[in-house]
Design a binder for these strands. Structure first.
Lengths: 137, 137
DNA sequence: TCTTGACCTAGAGTTAACTGTAGGGTTTAG
DNA sequence: CTAAACCCTACAGTTAACTCTAGGTCAAGA
């Protein structure tokens, strides 16, 4: 079975070896095995688990909470409900983020139009009617 | 014209007074005026600017870069192009984030289904075929 | 055999973005 | 008029997530 050194694994995951060691220290990847001399060997499965960890991280989940999830995984079927609930909560959380992001895009697009018009006019004053005001921030 | 104290402003923006003072110190809100005795008075316009700042922050823009934008605003029409470019870049950045988030949701939904099935079966083994393997993380 | 480069741990340092404290002034309700 | 509840600054402390250094081990090529 093909395995990867820490720096190979880091390369595939777009992380650094430092970060992987840090994750290990934090208990995020207790399943990664070592050679006799103590060198970590990452299996495909480990890379998949790390992709899941990155996925959870991208939802804004802190590393300590991800560790709880990993601990539940090690505990087996007794924690299935907790894990299911966690993913349902994550789903709700990301969906809320998605809604927020749509609003953000609207605001940014408004600004793009604002500045495009201003650039065409050569001045921001175009957005001030006849009144003298401070620029929009 | 109605104005707000720092703690009122914080309440409306869902921030703390500490955070607003920190933003001020970092040069994000140089336009906020003070009373004779030095107390900050936030105008509606200032709250709008802060909403824009929060919007930029939500795109992952660091405070130092937001400050550059504020500085450009103070410099006037000479910086219109920079500001336009910045918003175009922000737009591209958030759109990329949106794509990432869609992939995240897919992964999370996969896991929700995985755990729902496992819960129904009472064991994660249902996902292992007949093989004995470690659980999915 | 020797050297080079990758690996290891422990622990210190960094960075961003707050968050809180100390000490002091001001405003407002009773 | 006074006490509580604000406000202010300066600066120290916190937290998360790395990031790096020092000192050492190990494995492969010249």
């Amino acid at each position: 079975m093909k395995t990867y050194s820490i720096s190979e694994a880091a390369k595939y995951l777009d992380l650094t070896a430092y970060t992987l060691r840090y994750y290990d220290k934090e208990g995020l990847i207790p399943f990664v095995e070592r050679t006799e001399s103590g060198t970590r060997r990452f299996k495909e499965k480990d890379l998949d688990a790390l992709r899941m960890i990155e996925c959870l991280k991208s939802t804004g989940m802190p590393i300590k909470e991800i560790k709880h999830f990993i601990d539940w995984c090690l505990e087996g079927d007794a924690t299935l409900q907790q894990r299911y609930d966690m993913f349902l909560e994550r789903k709700a959380c990301v969906e809320a983020q998605l809604e927020e992001m749509k609003k953000t895009i609207e605001m940014i697009e408004h600004k793009c139009r604002y500045y495009q018009t201003a650039l065409e006019a050569g001045t921001e004053d175009i957005h001030k009617g006849a009144r003298l005001e401070f620029p929009e921030y």
